[in-house]
């Protein structure tokens, strides 16, 4: 467990707040004075995981930096739905340049703050998985390598959604995307290596790398706040389900994020200087089908022309994650 859970206040640490908790033990999101970095009226779809994840993360970063924060945004859904010219939902100083250069722009902003002597102003860069793992990857690696004082947050919804649901290097095998032509007779993405950016970030040896989901708010806030206490290049990848791109019900956004973690499909961990220092354990392990079935992008794996071998392959990926990161408690792993 990467953070200390609060025990026995009726709901433990799982809820956003709780009337019985001391105010300082509550989450940032529970506060009436949270900064609401992305305000109401944004044009994200119903049940958007990215809008939620971004508010969770940036509100936490604002709280940790005493509201002295500049956000740099790559092109992507997050930019498109929040800021159609001339209006914006952002309630933080915010800059957008190109799809692929957010890490470089953030480096520049951080350098500018340094030159101006504003050491208290912190910089966060953010983008989707397309802008991060594909298009902006070179700039991102450079930012890591130079150890620039930027926290980069990737909101991972496993495809380019603003271009009409298009495959990215974060799209999982077998997932169907709308605008990418399938390779071979099967409609979904092929089994391949993909691109595990959290591990690539760790390979750069940067001070902090973490993953989180919108289903574990306390863990997410803990990681953002921890990252904001550090300097140098830091990377957090937040798992944000996309109802539109995944073909899931809008009310299932958090449930799917929870299932991704509970099945082992998305390992939630943190690492310092290239070494894993903590994992969020699976509480009740679920079979991979429970995660796949509510999503239409995996519908071709089930039904009349089912592909149990592909489901088994995905289960093997999840099981490998569980082994590799030690996601199950000892007793549960053997029980």
């Amino acid at each position: 467990m990467s953070f200390q859970p609060v025990k026995f206040y009726q709901t433990g640490t799982y809820t956003v707040g709780n009337r019985l908790l001391a105010p300082d033990a509550r989450s940032v999101q529970a506060g009436e004075l949270r900064s609401n970095s992305i305000n109401s009226g944004h044009r994200a779809c119903q049940g958007c995981g990215e809008a939620l994840g971004a508010r969770y993360a940036i509100d936490a970063a604002m709280a940790e930096s005493n509201n002295q924060l500049i956000a740099v945004n790559a092109t992507g859904c997050l930019e498109v739905f929040s800021t159609p010219y001339p209006e914006s939902s952002w309630q933080v100083p915010w800059i957008h340049s190109l799809f692929g250069n957010a890490p470089a722009v953030a480096t520049g902003v951080a350098a500018a703050m340094k030159v101006k002597g504003k050491n208290n102003v912190r910089v966060v860069a953010q983008g989707g998985d397309g802008g991060t793992t594909d298009i902006g990857f070179g700039c991102l690696s450079g930012m890591f390598e130079r150890n620039d004082d930027v926290l980069y947050i990737c909101y991972d919804n496993e495809a380019y959604m603003n271009t009409g649901v298009q495959r990215s290097s974060a799209t999982p095998p077998t997932a169907r995307t709308a605008t990418t032509m399938p390779v071979g007779p099967e409609p979904g993405n092929v089994f391949g290596q993909g691109k595990n950016v959290p591990e690539i970030a760790m390979a750069h040896g940067i001070p902090y790398v973490a993953t989180a989901t919108v289903a574990d708010l306390r863990d997410l806030e803990y990681k953002v706040r921890k990252a904001m206490k550090m300097h140098g290049a830091r990377y957090i990848q937040i798992f944000v389900p996309c109802p539109l791109g995944w073909g899931s019900a809008s009310h299932d956004t958090i449930r799917l994020a929870r299932l991704a973690k509970e099945t082992g499909m998305f390992p939630v961990f943190e690492a310092e200087h290239g070494e894993v220092t903590g994992v969020l354990k699976i509480r009740n392990k679920q079979p991979i089908e429970d995660y796949l079935k509510p999503q239409k992008r995996f519908a071709h794996l089930f039904g009349k022309h089912a592909h149990p071998e592909m489901v088994a392959h995905l289960q093997a990926i999840a099981d490998r994650n569980i082994r590799k990161y030690g996601l199950l408690d000892e007793e549960k792993a053997h029980g």
Partner: peptide
Amino acid sequence: FECDNCYGVCPDN
């Protein structure tokens, strides 16, 4: 019982 969940999980504030 005022757990703040609805307040927290709304993507639209």
